Amino acid sequence: MSWLYVLDGEVSVGEHSLGKGDGVSSAQAPLPSIQAEGDSSLVLFLVDMTAPYSLAGTISGT
């Protein structure tokens, strides 16, 4: 699965417009074409949903 996060700027993802702080994933369907609507900074995370994980530690949210 991939998860796209918009750090800055604005992009079109298919028919949807995303701005700073927005994100979209490919959990339900592959991501459509992405078009920057100007200078934009994006991060794409590739997530292995079958990887082992832990909720222990200092940054676990608990």
Rank of each mutant, 00 (worst) to 15 (best):
A27G: 02
P32N: 05
V11A: 12
I34M: 13
D22G: 02
S17A: 07
L44P: 03
A27D: 08
P30C: 00
E37M: 06
I34H: 07
I59G: 04
L44I: 11
T50C: 04
L46R: 12
E15A: 12
L7C: 10
G61S: 09
V13M: 15
S41H: 06
L7N: 12
G9S: 05
G21F: 02
E10A: 14
V11I: 15
G9P: 02
G19Q: 11
L7G: 06
D22N: 14
H16G: 00
Y53R: 11
P30A: 01
L18Q: 07
G14H: 07
T62R: 15
T58S: 12
L55V: 00
L46K: 11
T58Q: 12
L46T: 05
Q28H: 10
A36C: 09
P32G: 02
D48P: 10
T58H: 11
D48I: 04
V11N: 12
T50E: 15
L4E: 00
Q28M: 10
A36F: 00
S54H: 04
G61P: 09
A29W: 04
A36L: 08
G14S: 05
W3K: 04
L55A: 05
V47G: 01
D39P: 13
T58E: 13
G19D: 03
G57K: 07
S25F: 01
A56L: 13
T62E: 13
L31W: 09
A51Y: 03
T50Y: 07
L42G: 08
S17G: 02
P52L: 05
A29Q: 15
V47W: 03
V13I: 15
L42S: 05
V11L: 15
M49N: 11
T50A: 13
G23E: 03
S41G: 02
Y53Q: 09
V47Y: 03
V6C: 14
M1A: 10
L42T: 02
G14W: 06
S2Q: 14
G19I: 03
W3Y: 01
V43C: 12
T58D: 12
M1W: 02
I34R: 11
G21R: 09
S17D: 03
V24A: 15
G23A: 06
A56K: 15
V43G: 08
S41T: 07
D48N: 15
S60P: 04
V47K: 05
H16R: 14
E10G: 04
Y5S: 07
Q35W: 02
M49P: 07
I34N: 09
V6P: 12
V43W: 08
L42N: 08
A36I: 00
L4Y: 00
P52C: 01
L18D: 05
A51V: 01
G38E: 04
D48E: 14
S26V: 00
G23P: 04
L55I: 00
G14K: 10
D22W: 05
V11Y: 09
W3E: 00
M1D: 03
E15K: 14
D48R: 15
T62D: 13
H16E: 12
D39S: 14
I59K: 15
I34W: 07
M49S: 12
D48W: 06
M49V: 09
E10R: 15
S60E: 08
S40W: 02
G21E: 05
L31T: 05
E37K: 14
V11F: 11
H16K: 12
